[in-house]
């Protein structure tokens, strides 16, 4: 038989970017242990709507842990108490009857709150944009074994590419630093032969954009790695530091020409 529980939620409510916002307390009775955390919030919202109240705004899309849209700070931990789990994949069986749950949005100046628990993560998109292009031949698929990639490099590139850009690293960091995200994005191209032509320029531009967005600096607390639903390693941060040093101290600047072909 399936267990149900009665919960008390303390939820951050904020009408918009200029609203001061504050916590509201909601009762969430008869929540099934089989619900995901977001389904629990769906139920709470149905009840709020039925009462003619404004539902709690939160982000979600795929609800299968791969899109990076969802993300709530649940009882002080981004994505909640389970390791390597997104909020949508966190199930209510990890909570107990009578629990009080505090739900907050990601907190960072670079992630302004749009409404309630929804933040604008456009800063991440701008960092990716700043990284620029990759020189690969478009058109028909290349011969599969034409470009050899060492297995450990392919594996590590995949580990880095597992980043879904949810922003939990920023939310967890005591400094609101985006180093783990930037490190993962720089590494997944930088580890592969296809990413080599722009490797050092890309790192410089992404780090410059990261700083321009107002994220904090890294001070090696490693809270990012603990919060990451994809378990991205801080090892990539060491690699980012290494690449940036080489990019700025050793490598020559790529001359940017306007109006070039391609």
């Amino acid at each position: 038989m399936s267990k149900t529980m009665n919960l008390t939620l303390h939820v951050w409510r904020q009408k918009g970017g200029t609203d001061i916002g504050g916590f509201e307390t909601y009762k969430a009775p008869e929540i099934s242990e089989h619900m995901s955390f977001l389904e629990m919030l769906d139920v709470v919202n149905e009840r709020l709507l039925a009462d003619g109240k404004e539902p709690i705004a939160f982000d979600s899309d795929c609800r299968e842990g791969i899109c990076g849209m969802c993300g709530l700070v649940i009882n002080g931990v981004p994505h909640g108490p389970n390791a390597a789990t997104t909020t949508c994949q966190l199930h209510m069986r990890h909570f107990n009857d009578g629990d009080e749950i505090t739900i907050e949005p990601w907190r960072a100046a670079a992630f302004p709150v749009l409404r309630d628990l929804v933040v604008d993560r456009g800063a991440f998109d701008r960092i990716i944009q700043a990284g620029g292009y990759v020189s690969v031949n478009a058109g028909s698929a290349p011969e599969a074994n034409g470009l050899p990639v060492a297995k450990p490099d392919a594996d590590r590139a995949m580990d880095a590419a597992a980043c879904i850009g949810c922003g939990a690293c920023v939310a967890a960091c005591p400094n609101a630093s985006a180093m783990l995200f930037v490190a993962a994005k720089a590494a997944h191209l930088g580890l592969l032969p296809q990413g080599q032509p722009e490797r050092y320029e890309r790192v410089k531009k992404m780090v410059a954009q990261m700083d321009a967005e107002g994220f904090g600096h890294c001070s090696n607390h490693y809270e990012c790695m603990a919060a990451c639903p994809k378990e991205i390693s801080v090892d990539f941060i060491a690699r980012l530091n290494r690449d940036l040093m080489r990019a700025t101290v050793v490598e020559r600047d790529h001359e940017e020409k306007s109006g070039g072909a391609g």
Partner: peptide, 26 residues
């Protein structure tokens, strides 16, 4: 660094649990 990072989180958490950091780091 601190003058930049002081502005990186203007609104803090009501509840924040650190999972791995050390007393020395904090």
């Amino acid at each position: 660094l601190l003058s930049r990072t002081a502005a990186a989180r203007p609104i803090g958490y009501r509840l924040k649990k650190n999972q791995t950091t050390t007393y020395a780091a904090l």
